[in-house]
Computed example of a mutant assay.
Amino acid sequence: MLRRWRERRRLSQLELAARAEVSARHLSFVETGRARPTSAMILRLAGHLEVPLREQNRLLVSGGFAPAHPEHRLGEPSMSLVSDAITKVLDAHDPFPAAVIDQQWDLVAANEALERLVAGAAAHLLEPPINVLRLSLHPDGLAPAIANLGEWRAHLLDRLDREIDASADAGLIALRAELDGYPGSSDHPDPDTDAIVVPLRIRLGDSELAMFSMTAVFGTPRDVTVSELAIETFYPADATSAALLRGLAGG
């Protein structure tokens, strides 16, 4: 497992050994099973390989040790500070959309602004667990209303590919294969080369809502659940879009 992570990070044994300040010989013995590493050594190597916390626990279990990183549900009392912080961020961002997603891109929480935007999607896409990528790109979801579907789809898939490359997560790989089966969009405008960020453009009746997104994660997480959460906040890309969002909030 360590060898697979090292190869995924495109590091030689010598390079990893130098970073972790161990001998290349010892690292070779660890990878081939000739030497049994301590839990501290496993975590040391995993840290230099930027292995996600969930996978670090799997490495430890494979080495005969207990997991080092706890995993709690967001609704547990011990997670109240994290839950309260998330609620404050989502509520404060209204009337602009915001959501919390996990590593699988499943929706953990959302504010009312986001719920208003996705209310017209098919019921089967709004049944928990709601996958944000599936909801965005499925023909029964937001896809028909996205004016720049091809551009937005390319942006989302590129981000997903980078996450797969970093995590090797089997669930994300399966999701990528599913999304590849969705019809794309060929009749979208050319990308705006003057734009600072890629916008999401959604048709609302005779109007068009343009937004850009910002992603935030928790700093120095020690819990597996916390390490896999991301807060996606959307901001209006122009004054017209800001007025549209405020109008939706006002009914």
Results as ranks from 00 to 15, higher is better:
residue 4 R to D: 15
residue 5 W to L: 03
residue 9 R to S: 07
residue 13 Q to A: 14
residue 16 L to E: 02
residue 18 A to S: 12
residue 19 R to G: 03
residue 20 A to H: 03
residue 21 E to A: 13
residue 29 F to M: 12
residue 31 E to S: 00
residue 33 G to I: 01
residue 33 G to D: 00
residue 41 M to T: 13
residue 43 L to A: 03
residue 46 A to T: 10
residue 47 G to C: 09
residue 47 G to H: 04
residue 51 V to K: 00
residue 57 N to P: 02
residue 61 V to M: 13
residue 61 V to N: 00
residue 62 S to V: 01
residue 64 G to N: 04
residue 67 P to H: 02
residue 70 P to A: 07
residue 72 H to L: 01
residue 73 R to F: 09
residue 76 E to M: 11
residue 78 S to H: 06
residue 79 M to W: 11
residue 81 L to N: 06
residue 96 F to L: 14
residue 97 P to A: 05
residue 100 V to I: 14
residue 101 I to S: 13
residue 102 D to H: 04
residue 102 D to S: 10
residue 105 W to V: 03
residue 105 W to R: 06
residue 106 D to F: 06
residue 107 L to E: 07
residue 109 A to R: 13
residue 111 N to Y: 00
residue 112 E to V: 11
residue 116 R to V: 05
residue 117 L to W: 08
residue 120 G to A: 13
residue 121 A to T: 05
residue 125 L to M: 11
residue 126 L to G: 06
residue 127 E to F: 04
residue 129 P to F: 11
residue 131 N to F: 12
residue 134 R to Y: 02
residue 135 L to E: 04
residue 139 P to R: 10
residue 140 D to W: 01
residue 143 A to Q: 08
residue 145 A to Q: 10
residue 147 A to D: 11
residue 147 A to P: 02
residue 152 W to C: 03
residue 156 L to N: 04
residue 157 L to Q: 08
residue 158 D to S: 14
residue 158 D to C: 11
residue 159 R to N: 12
residue 161 D to L: 09
residue 163 E to D: 15
residue 163 E to Y: 08
residue 163 E to P: 04
residue 166 A to C: 11
residue 167 S to V: 13
residue 168 A to P: 04
residue 172 L to V: 06
residue 178 E to W: 11
residue 179 L to F: 06
residue 184 G to R: 01
residue 184 G to M: 02
residue 185 S to Y: 08
residue 186 S to T: 15
residue 187 D to W: 06
residue 191 P to G: 05
residue 193 T to C: 10
residue 199 P to G: 02
residue 199 P to L: 09
residue 200 L to D: 06
residue 201 R to K: 15
residue 204 L to D: 00
residue 206 D to F: 07
residue 206 D to V: 12
residue 209 L to R: 05
residue 210 A to T: 11
residue 212 F to K: 01
residue 214 M to P: 00
residue 221 P to T: 10
residue 226 V to F: 07
residue 231 I to M: 11
residue 231 I to E: 05
residue 232 E to T: 03
residue 234 F to Q: 15
residue 236 P to F: 06
residue 236 P to D: 10
residue 238 D to S: 00
residue 240 T to R: 14
residue 241 S to D: 02
